[in-house]
């Protein structure tokens, strides 16, 4: 066990790498890492796919009425903790409008936060809040492809799907990489909305890596282990980001 607690915060003893060993031996750490990686991958892929589709599909409208972007990106303004709080209300069986209308229209409503559904519920919540971000990135990238390039491609007979796949998408590839990396890292380090909505979840079922760090830091009072986990997390994030940059800088020939 660590020698750093709140009681010894100002006069800790050095422990070497004992804290790191403790963390690596803790099953809950690996569970939370697994949750974070699954959550981060899934939400990043969904957000990027959806954002890309919407940016391209809605481009004719959004380029003419740019103010609509303000409405579409409004969720980004809401603090994730507030978002969690709102969904606590919205999904509640007795006061929430979602179960209310589902019951009224279909006579049944799923238990969104029951053990079998809670993972998908938090994924959908995250995707709904952050797809606007990827939409915005792709909207800018799509709009910045110069008209001359499109014109030239059109002269060569490119159109529709082929145009997108061979001309437009390759030009947005750097944005694609950056969006995926940012959303992945953001997904892995998800904290506020899940913490407010379900805490660590029944038996730790929605314990992301930051929630693990938070609970061991405070509740467990095990500061040494929490810091060790934080350091491991920071190193891993750095690696991912470095890879993403290399990917982004590999501009299409």
């Amino acid at each position: 066990m660590s020698e750093v607690g709140f009681e010894t915060l100002r006069a800790p003893q050095l422990e070497g790498f004992g804290n790191f060993a403790d963390v690596l031996r803790d099953e809950a750490f690996w569970d939370s890492l697994g949750f974070s990686l699954r959550f981060g991958t899934l939400t990043a892929v969904l957000e990027v796919a959806l954002g890309l589709f919407l940016a391209v599909f809605l481009a004719p409208i959004l380029q003419r009425h740019a103010w609509l972007l303000a409405i579409l990106t409004l969720p980004m303004m809401v603090a994730p903790a507030m978002m969690g709080l709102m969904y606590r209300l919205v999904l509640h069986e007795f006061v929430g409008p979602v179960p209310h209308y589902l019951l009224a229209w279909f006579g049944t409503s799923p238990a969104f936060l029951a053990p079998g559904n809670v993972f998908w519920t938090v994924v959908v919540i995250e995707v709904l809040q952050w797809t606007p971000f990827t939409l915005l990135l792709f909207h800018l990238a799509y709009g910045s492809i110069s008209g001359e390039i499109r014109e030239a491609a059109r002269m060569d007979g490119a159109k529709g799907w082929w145009m997108f796949r061979r001309v437009e998408f390759p030009m947005m590839l750097p944005t694609f990489g950056v969006a995926l990396a940012i959303r992945f890292i953001d997904g892995v380090r998800v904290f506020d909305n899940i913490y407010v909505l379900t805490g660590a979840g029944a038996g730790g079922s929605t314990m992301s890596l930051p929630i693990y760090i938070y609970t061991s830091f405070f509740r467990g009072g095990n500061i040494g282990a929490a810091l060790a986990a934080s350091v491991l997390f920071a190193l891993a994030s750095f690696l991912i980001l470095a890879l993403a940059w290399r990917f982004a800088q590999r501009r299409p020939a």
Partner: peptide
């Protein structure tokens, strides 16, 4: 008890009781 009970704490439980259900 509601199927969502594993996410219920004080306010959720009160709201359920107050609904009359």
């Amino acid at each position: 008890t509601p199927a969502d009970s594993l996410s219920y704490e004080y306010p959720e439980a009160n709201a359920a009781f107050q609904s009359g259900q």
